[in-house]
Structure formats: structure tokens, C-alpha cells
Design a binder for these strands. Structure first.
Lengths: 197, 197
DNA sequence: CGCAAAGTGGCAGCCACTGCCACGTGACCT
DNA sequence: AGGTCACGTGGCAGTGGCTGCCACTTTGCG
């Protein structure tokens, strides 16, 4: 990797970190892009080249983790059974979430109170679900694989979301894995009501 | 209802319709709020009082239908079994979607290509899922009802989404209900993979 | 060393969105 | 019926996110 790329990567990180500090200190809406650029000692125009929107600046951290998780799934051996690969994925997410701790909680709470940021986050997870679904479908094969894969990815995302959410709401003190296991048990058994005519 | 409210309701409708026409004719981004206000013969300031954001102007139609559907669910008899009530909900959505036809398709396609609009739509459906989940949980009662309800509402939303999406992508020509039934069959049987260690 | 490629940043400008205030119209009451 | 009061309307000025354009600087490479 050349000197150029290294510097850019550093700047990129610096910008996100600076923004995060200002956001937590003064709030998302009250922080202007100009302030962030000034605090990071770059021109406003440069800031926009790294992050096209203010929301991206807040959410890049979370979005990066989501993409990593997808990569973990893709890295599973091609002949691994889908349930096993899904477990690997969930496990990775819970582990990294627990590791990132405070930062995750802070980002979530900021995004939660900011319509535009929350919308973008929900958009990301929705698209993420779609990508996971196509990957699952590819591994399943056969008829109606796409449909089953879509449902499976939705379930997986829900399990992750509900686990993380309750964990965040408890301020990082509750046991994230307990919720996950209970949710997966419900899915395996027939504890989840399904529409019936 | 007084004369005042009637007029406001009419203006509200007029604004959404005018905006919709301009959006489909010139595109979402290329249409300014000022143009919409001018075309509807109101001041720009007034437009903002009816619709706080440009995205709301595009999505009010779809969002309204979603809220109606939730109301249908809430209107089910309190002792109706949850699977039956869910079926009623899905049925209502598919029926109104089919009725609204072209408008739904046009809004979806516009929103799909516009990040901010798509984000807001995904945000709406996510929050909608949450509201549905609390309603299901209330009707289920018992331990871990909340968890099961969250999973059930996610499944329901996925079934609806995938049915509507394939229908929209086919330009309104495919059979929406076939997908719905196949998806529900998969959920009832064990055709959907679940994470397993 | 010199040139091409690529990153930086300043400037002007568009437009979504807001607070404020004056005006006019429908609602209600005596 | 008329007055008055609440409320919807709309104009104006201003903020800030975001973009196109262009000149300047720095890096990579022959």
C-alpha cells in the first residue's frame, strides 16, 4: 500500500472519530459539517469527498461492521450447511458488538433520535438483508430457494437486531447471548405464529 | 367536520397529487418544492406546513396504506387467534395494493432510485414492524411473547414485502397471491433454515 | 528531474427547511 | 348579525447540507 493510500485511510478515520466526538458532545443536528472539517483540520470540500453525507459520517462505523459480517458469511466453506454458516455469522456480530461496546451504544442512541440517521441505518440493514438473502439462496439451490432464503435472512437479521437492541437498552449490561438463544429456540420450535386462513 | 377542515383535507390531497405528477414527469430530485407549491397554487411556506419533507410528499400514499393495515389488525376481535388476525392483515394489504395498482408501482420505482426516499420508506416499514410486534405481543401474552411477536411481525412483513416486490417488478402482471401462499407454506413447514451451532 | 495522476480546498451557488411576523378568513359567542 | 378570536396562509430572511468548477499542491513513476 502506497504512502498516499495510507494517509487517506488515516484521514478517513480521523474524520469519523472527530465527527463522533462532536456529535456526542453537541448533538447530531447542532454539529455542522464545517465544524467537523475545522476540527479535523481539512477543508469542508475535502470532508465531503470522504463522506458524501453527514449521516454516513455517523454510521460508517456500524455499516462497516455489517459489511464485515457479510464477508464472514461469504468466507464460510462452500459445502458448509446454511444453518451452521448462519450461526457463524450471528456469532461474529455478537462478538464484535460486545467488543465495540460504548461506541456502538452511543451511535445507536444518536441515530435513534435523528430521523434521517435512523432512516439511513434502517435502509442499510434492509439492503444488508437482501445481500445476505442472495448469498443464502446461492448456497441452498433448488426451487423456491430465493423465497426461503429471504425469510431466513429476515429471521437472522431480526434475531441480531432484537439481541443488540435489548443489550443497548440495558446500557450494555444484560446478557446478549441469552436473548439470541431464546429467539433461535423459538424459530426452531413452532413458537412463532404464522398467518393461517 | 367544519368547512376549514374540509378545505385543508382537499389541499392536502391536492398537494400530494400535484407532487406525484411532477415527480413522475421530471423525476424526484429535479422537482423543487417551490415548483410543487406553484403548481398547486399555494405558497412554499404552506406546502411545508402540510408535508415537512419532500420525501413525505412522495410516500404519504404508501405510508397511509400501511397505517390503515395496522388499523385493520387492531380492529380484529380481541379473542381472534393471532394467525387468523395476521392472515386478515396480509389479505387487506394485498387487496389494497392490487387496487391502487399503478400508483403503488410508480411510487415504489421512484423511491427505489432515490436514496433519501428509499431510506425513509425502509424506516417506515421498520417502525411499522415494531408497532405490529407490540400489538401481537399484547394479544399473545405469556412469557417470551415479545420475542415471538417480534419474529412473527418480521415474518409477516417479509411475506408482504416479497409478494409486493415481485409483483411490482413484473409490472403488476404476476400473481401476487401465489408468492404469498408459497411463503406462508415455507414458514409453516420447516423449509426456512435457522442458525444452528 | 519532470510529468502525469490524483488529492486538496476555496468560491459561488442551489435548494431543502425554519423562525418570525403580518394578513386574511372561518368559527364561535353574545 | 356583528365582533372578536383563533387559526391557516404566505412572504422574507437566513441556515446549512451538498455540488460543480477550477486552481494549487503533493505523490508516484519513468
Amino acid at each position: 500500500m502506497g504512502l498516499r493510500e495510507t494517509k487517506m485511510e488515516r484521514t478517513r478515520q480521523l474524520l469519523a472519530d472527530t465527527a463522533f466526538e462532536l456529535f456526542t458532545a453537541n448533538g447530531f443536528a447542532a454539529t455542522t459539517m464545517e465544524q467537523i472539517a475545522a476540527a479535523a483540520e481539512v477543508g469542508p470540500r475535502t470532508l465531503y469527498r470522504y463522506y458524501a453525507t453527514k449521516e454516513a459520517l455517523l454510521l460508517t462505523f456500524v455499516e462497516q461492521r455489517l459489511d464485515d459480517a457479510l464477508e464472514v458469511f461469504r468466507a464460510q466453506p462452500e459445502d458448509a450447511p446454511v444453518p451452521r454458516a448462519l450461526h457463524e455469522l450471528i456469532d461474529y456480530v455478537l462478538r464484535t458488538v460486545a467488543e465495540s461496546g460504548d461506541r456502538i451504544i452511543a451511535v445507536y442512541e444518536l441515530a435513534w433520535r435523528t430521523p434521517s440517521a435512523r432512516a439511513r441505518l434502517n435502509d442499510k440493514t434492509t439492503r444488508w438483508r437482501g445481500e445476505l438473502a442472495t448469498e443464502i439462496a446461492r448456497r441452498m439451490g433448488g426451487r423456491s430457494a430465493e423465497l426461503a432464503a429471504t425469510l431466513a435472512s429476515a429471521n437472522t437479521m431480526t434475531v441480531i437486531e432484537v439481541s443488540v437492541r435489548t443489550w443497548v437498552e440495558s446500557g450494555g449490561r444484560s446478557n446478549m447471548r441469552r436473548i439470541t438463544h431464546r429467539a433461535l429456540d423459538l424459530l426452531r420450535g413452532s413458537g412463532v405464529p404464522v398467518a393461517t386462513p
